[in-house]
């Protein structure tokens, strides 16, 4: 691991980087050479509180709380540019996904994020119908913050009037099978 001697000399705990490197897809994080290719090609890095390179450095420095509560991991659009270009083969996008999940489970995620709310509504929808019902998703999400959503009414109407938002959900034939699978997947575990 690059910089290992420095970390050892300074007595930095390696728990967090170990946690990340044992997640499927996270193994290569120990190889980071801090070249900054990821931050340079990330389309969202200029709006992030910590760029992807910075986040990896923080993971290595054991700054668990700071990483999990950062806004940056929620701005990742999973475009995979960093993953493709990383010269050390680190799957940064998959690590960003993992950080989202760890942040949610540990309750450290920053509150009030729209993408986190939308994700949860989306998951409930899929578990309920087996497919996404976009009209209901849009409505439920808007109802999270009705006053702010007023400005979105024209957009919703434009979608509807162009036939883009069927009101009835498409369900799969046996939704119970999805429920059974989700139950089992949660039982066998994983991140």
């Amino acid at each position: 691991m690059a910089g290992l001697d420095v970390l050892m000399e300074r007595g930095v705990a390696l728990d967090f980087i170990k946690e990340i490197s044992t997640i499927p897809g996270g193994e290569e994080i120990v190889q980071c050479i801090q070249c900054g290719t990821c931050s340079g090609c990330c389309p969202a890095s200029f709006m992030m509180d910590y760029t992807p390179r910075h986040l990896v450095a923080m993971i290595r420095a054991g700054l668990r709380e700071e990483v999990l509560s950062s806004q940056a991991i929620w701005l990742c659009t999973s475009c995979y540019t960093c993953t493709y270009r990383c010269p050390m083969g680190i799957k940064i996008t998959d690590i960003m996904y993992a950080l989202k999940r760890i942040a949610l489970r540990s309750g450290k995620y920053p509150r009030g994020l729209k993408v986190e709310k939308l994700s949860k509504e989306f998951v409930n929808m899929i578990n309920r119908y087996g497919r996404n019902h976009e009209a209901e998703l849009v409505f439920r999400f808007a109802m999270k913050n009705p006053f702010k959503s007023i400005k979105d009414i024209p957009l919703g109407w434009s979608l509807f009037s162009h036939g883009k938002l069927p009101l009835m959900p498409e369900k799969i034939k046996d939704v119970n099978k999805i429920k059974t699978m989700i139950q089992k997947a949660e039982e066998v575990g994983g991140l």
Binding site: G130, N132, I178, I182
Partner: peptide, 18 residues
């Protein structure tokens, strides 16, 4: 059924693969 898209992956990986 739905593939789960990127949103489900950010919440639960095993369900998403399932």
């Amino acid at each position: 059924n739905c593939c789960g898209a990127s949103l489900y992956m950010g919440i639960n990986e095993m369900n998403s693969f399932a």
